[in-house]
């Protein structure tokens, strides 16, 4: 009987560390349709609400491309991002002057986690850009950034 109680507790315990690093994106049809056509789904948890609002106010000039949306969709997706922003390990997403950063790859947390990767590595033809998370994090589209699924391509 005691083992029967202990077993579920052990399973929960084992599941915890993996879960803490899981950035799976909550289901949202509008976000999926509009924000995953040019790149994978960047997790809403990785930026603060101010950063998402600033990005969603400039979609016609979105990192060198036009990602403009009709107003209804834009507002709905902004609400979704804001509601799911600010994961527990996000850290600050503002620059030195206090303005919201628009890129996850410019945040202090990203720089800290990738301090061992050189600029040249990020520029490899097989990677192209630090924003190309899936090049190294094979399961990134599913929100998994765990070390065991990392493979830096040559």
């Amino acid at each position: 009987m005691k083992t029967l109680i202990a077993l579920p507790a052990l399973l929960v315990f084992l599941a915890l560390p993996a879960h803490a690093d899981n950035y799976s994106v909550p289901k949202n049809a509008a976000f999926e349709e509009e924000c995953t056509s040019c790149h994978m789904a960047f997790p809403p948890q990785m930026l603060h609400a101010d950063s998402w609002r600033a990005m969603m106010n400039g979609l016609s000039k979105h990192f060198g491309t036009d990602a403009s949306l009709d107003e209804k969709r834009r507002a709905a997706i902004t609400d979704f991002l804001v509601a799911n922003a600010n994961g527990r390990k996000t850290g600050t997403t503002r620059d030195a002057a206090g303005n919201p950063l628009l890129r996850i790859t410019e945040t202090a947390r990203f720089e800290k986690k990738h301090s061992e990767i050189s600029a040249a590595t990020f520029k490899r033809a097989s990677i192209k850009s630090p924003a190309n998370c899936t090049a190294c994090h094979r399961q990134a589209a599913a929100g998994d950034y765990n070390e065991r699924s990392i493979n830096i391509p040559k």
């Binding site: 040019c38 790149h39 994978m40 990192f63 060198g64 491309t65 192209k128 850009s129 924003a131 190309n132 090049a135």
Partner: peptide, 14 residues
Amino acid sequence: DKPTQAGRHAKTDK
């Protein structure tokens, strides 16, 4: 230039 085939986003590679 062969749109019957799959392409890749020039910036993101998707």
